[in-house]
Design a binder for these strands. Structure first.
Lengths: 340, 340
DNA sequence: CAGGAAAGCCAAAGCGCTTTGGAAGACTCT
DNA sequence: AGAGTCTTCCAAAGCGCTTTGGCTTTCCTG
């Protein structure tokens, strides 16, 4: 059942039927009702391919998925996706993932824009001066950055959490509890969120005349194994930290294991605060010692990004406003006063 | 730059240019070269929307993503996606995720098929007599099931691992080591994989005249918390199991925690084998006691599913062959002879 | 050397929608 | 009553590609 047939059986032109269905004003309300009724009765659904060709609108949002044998997709992605999908569903938006060589995403971005394959895209895990942001800004497709880049001479729309503030708060609490030697087990230091978190910790320490020692900060992919390694390295130093701030719950698993392996205890020997993106399958309160966290639901962020993308597509949102969400500090048993 | 312009500047018809570009035989090789050359020089890329409308082919594969406030996307999904994306990239395929109300996916499947939004789809986490399988079979779109359904009067193409065999092997090993009371901490018992795994364990036990006691099998979503709960329940029984087989690494984290909380030890008091889907961020060899596993890379499965989908789209694969991959049993420190 | 086959190319008809540029009829106003 | 204004509808022109059906030209073959 296509438009031609439908309009024919209604004894109307395709124009009128199309307009009636798409809510244009220049059609009699009585006629509109007739049309909508018939459309529903015959289960008419406009062919999206045809509509795309005619309008250029796709009803899809895009994401360029870096792939490659040695490229791991972040497990956070799935939670973000939950939120995004949940919102997208309610607005009949689909998400298209375009796999790209991790080392050459530009080609793919150019392709999906040139081909008008999607109405808008989002970017995640941005870095300072991220080329993708600059590229999309040039290409002129609606987009939202999940996270933040830095160092551009233009503004761009983003949704981020207050990573610096969160880690500042976490570190400040630890300092207040008497800790003098903090350490930071961070994610990939090339990503902005990691930079911001380190900045937050440093700022809190500086406020009390303290420093984040050279060997007291480590950056790596957020795996359990890397958390373990980093923690061992830190804790086996001559002057070991008495408190650790950690960028991920998964890494924190490794930290806890390292502490245990070394015969130390949390929070007796070392206090621990980790960032929690709120996974359904791993909760900080269920750690052997309940884990204090800086908490922010990445799922909500996904829904928000979808909402903004939808708004930009429909022209409801313009401008380049960045928004930064506050992060909760949730104190649990893994923090205590400095030993000694 | 569109076909019209290109053909005009080549002083050829659109027909010929189109055919030259698409490798049809009825065009002079010399002409073809000229055309391809000009196309490359001017960066001509056929408009996919137009091509879709004309051919019905989309170059996309689909996945219906169940969403909802209380629906959690499995973290396995991301690993599967890595493999799928990696293959899809090399074949210029995109993946479109269509979010659907978890309780009404049928509408969405019907939509993407009726609208010809994708060339093929895949299904994951199937259940016995899964309605999605029946539906797709009826709708006649190429598809692959990742996993298996059961109880149809028709065959369908799937790629699965030998869950029953894997858990049979695991249980058999434990029995050989003298264990008499095994327990199974399984995933959602409505899914086929969980049923097969339980079947495998039961078969191994039965071979030695043993049974999986009523209270010795638990099924729930594969979270750390559920692993913990299940393990506590099991281990606090009057006649506690001396060995546990567990369906997921994440649940195994909870099991380990429960064992520790109860003052027991692995493998002294209880042996543990878990299924490992091979996450980059959580490895069984890094458990406090290295974890024995049944191992099968879900990432490879993703690549294989993509490969088969591509083959079906291009007509290279026909029929309804199901394929079942063997699973490795990797013995590590978490298993030992039965205590006492 | 006629007749048929094969090679190489083209014009035009879709694919199914949106949108432009009217046009007919009804209504208002002077 | 004539001019102007809405209201409501339509024919037809795209959007940019693929594909059908046919038309020349060249090449064999008997």
């Amino acid at each position: 059942m296509n438009l031609k047939q439908l309009s024919h059986m209604l004894a109307l032109s395709q124009t009128t039927v199309s307009r009636a269905l798409n809510g244009y004003p220049e059609v009699n309300e009585e006629t509109r009702r007739r049309v909508m009724d018939a459309a529903k009765r015959h289960g008419y659904r406009p062919n999206p391919s045809a509509r795309r060709l005619a309008t250029g609108k796709t009803g899809m949002i895009g994401y360029v998925l870096p792939t490659g044998a040695s490229v791991d997709i972040d497990p956070h992605f799935v939670e973000f996706l939950s939120g995004l999908g949940d919102y997208a569903r309610s607005h009949e938006l689909d998400l298209v993932l375009s796999p790209a060589d991790a080392d050459d995403q530009e080609t793919t971005y150019r392709r999906i824009v040139a081909n008008r394959q999607v109405d808008a895209v989002y970017i995640s895990s941005p870095r300072p001066a991220d080329r993708r942001v600059a590229l999309l800004n040039t290409l002129g497709i609606p987009f939202i950055v999940h996270g933040r880049s830095e160092g551009f001479d233009f503004d761009y729309p983003y949704t981020d959490i207050d990573n610096e503030g969160a880690f500042h708060e976490a570190a400040r609490l630890l300092v207040q509890l008497g800790h003098r030697r903090l350490a930071l087990i961070n994610g990939d230091s090339r990503e902005t969120f990691a930079i911001h978190r380190e900045r937050g910790v440093r700022r809190a320490l500086a406020a009390s005349g303290l420093l984040l020692g050279d060997g007291h900060v480590s950056s790596s992919a957020m795996t359990e194994e890397n958390g373990y390694r980093a923690a061992r390295l830190l804790l086996e130093r001559d002057i070991a930290p008495t408190a650790i701030v950690c960028s991920s719950l998964i890494m924190a698993l490794g930290v806890v294991r390292a502490v245990r392996d070394l015969g130390l205890s949390i929070p007796g020997d070392v206090s621990l605060i980790a960032h929690d993106d709120v996974f359904p399958w791993l909760k900080p309160e269920n750690f052997s010692v309940p884990l204090a966290t800086t908490r922010s639901s990445i799922r909500l962020a996904g829904a928000r990004v979808a909402e903004r993308l939808a708004a930009r597509i429909s022209g409801l949102e313009e401008g380049v406003r960045g928004e930064v969400w506050p992060v909760d500090l949730v104190v649990r048993g893994s923090v205590a006063g400095a030993p000694g």
